[in-house]
Nucleic acid binder design. Structure first.
Lengths: 114, 114
DNA sequence: ACGTCATATAACGTCAACCGTACTATCCGG
DNA sequence: CCGGATAGTACGGTTGACGTTATATGACGT
């Protein structure tokens, strides 16, 4: 699962949102790092709905414009939880390996050995 | 950055490895979840070397077979550290949002409000 | 009145990256 | 002699994200 997809699921985890609301939420959640483009968002939304991770909650017509609200399904929630867990383990593994990084000019032994 | 790429950098963080060694290391680091295929590995290796995140440390000929050892550069190490940090924040955001998840049959108020 | 921005979705085409598979080659064990 | 582990190369396919453009309306400024 890619970052944009992960962040869309994250945005929908707390409450149902429509497309544009997801874009705003993702900006907040990613601390401004990720600004979804329409092409990325609606493509991902279609894929996620097909996979059953999200579903259309309702369609609202506000001032002539259609608002389609998406909701995370139970499958989507558990997929997101699994993925979050995976990310934490990957980050921990990387940080552990970096700690073992060979220090230049330091005779190297097995890690953790004095 | 994708998962295979991240795991390759992780594998190289502790010490230089050759292609096949990276495959083995990634299996261990990912607890058996990720088994790199040659196409994925060598493609990623070329890309990472081009970006300056890894470099060839040395080439060894062992019993007629070439072994190319790759090493993480300083740039690569900081890119990996940055990415690990990002993963931890993404995981934390997802878990926080999931905690706010609307419980069906529970009148919902602002999160954290009694 | 007109332009522009924010809201809101759809529909392109493109590209990077990963994936599977097959191929080459050597050494070892059965 | 064959299969499996080791080690790397080559190639084609698919997915998913990306950028851009089009469409539509309301609000705001000039």
């Amino acid at each position: 699962m890619q970052e944009p997809t992960f962040l869309i699921l994250t945005a929908l985890a707390a409450q149902p949102l429509h497309g544009y609301g997801i874009i705003q939420s993702v900006i907040t959640l990613s601390e401004g790092e990720v600004k979804l483009r329409p092409g990325t968002l609606y493509g991902a939304l279609d894929r996620l709905a097909e996979q059953g991770l999200i579903e259309v909650e309702r369609e609202e017509a506000v001032e002539g414009r259609l608002r389609r609200y998406y909701r995370l399904t139970d499958d989507g929630a558990s997929a997101l939880a699994t993925e979050a867990e995976r990310l934490r383990r990957r980050a921990a593994a990387a940080e552990a390996q970096l700690k073992d990084r060979a220090v230049p000019g330091f005779g190297h032994r097995a890690p953790g050995v004095a």
